[in-house]
């Protein structure tokens, strides 16, 4: 039933997974349907909302616009990979500052914020707004998202 199936290895959250995919399948669909990693969400499936954000080789990527076959062998990190047992300081900052409401956009927000802090550990408010603007939050949690990212930036520094 699959059209032109390919068997590929996807390295997700540090583990290698074998999957059979169609060349047209997005990374988002493969993560969600085959690997059970449903943290990344499908808000639009057309690159407008950022709910599907993951990291590929250290850069934030919209997994709905990324073909699974194109990231074979690359290092993929999803929101599930951020916390092992305990929350990442960034996730803690999101909870502490109430940077979420319905929570549907939250995994994408967290991943975009993670990328921002990786490249700019002490961002200004303007930088936070700029880097977080690819992620829509229809509940309008933006003011507290900004606060959480700035708070985490302090936290990240405290933890060295």
């Amino acid at each position: 039933m699959l059209v032109n199936p390919r068997r590929i290895t996807l390295r997700v959250n540090g583990l290698n997974h074998m999957v059979t995919v169609e060349p047209r399948e997005s990374l988002l669909d493969v993560l969600r349907k085959q690997l059970g990693l449903t943290g990344a969400k499908k808000g639009c499936d057309m690159g407008s909302c950022g709910a599907c954000t993951v990291m590929v080789d250290g850069k934030s990527r919209l997994s709905c616009l990324t073909l699974a076959v194109s990231v074979e062998g690359m290092d993929i990190v999803t929101v599930e990979g951020l916390s092992r047992g305990e929350l990442d300081p960034l996730q803690e900052a999101f909870v502490r500052n109430d940077a979420l409401q319905c929570g549907f956009c939250t995994p994408g927000q967290v991943m975009s914020a993670k990328f921002l802090l990786d490249i700019i550990p002490k961002p200004s408010v303007e930088e936070v707004k700029y880097y977080m603007s690819g992620n829509i939050c229809r509940c309008g949690a933006y003011p507290k998202i900004i606060r959480a990212v700035l708070d985490a930036a302090g936290e990240v520094k405290r933890n060295g």
């Binding site: 943290g39 929350l87 996730q91 909870v95 109430d98 979420l100 929570g103 549907f104 939250t106 995994p107």
Partner: peptide, 18 residues
């Protein structure tokens, strides 16, 4: 802070889509 905050930031909260 929300009691379901951790579930939402880790992606473990299951929505209908999930």
């Amino acid at each position: 802070p929300r009691v379901d905050g951790a579930a939402k930031v880790t992606g473990s909260a299951k929505y209908t889509h999930d």
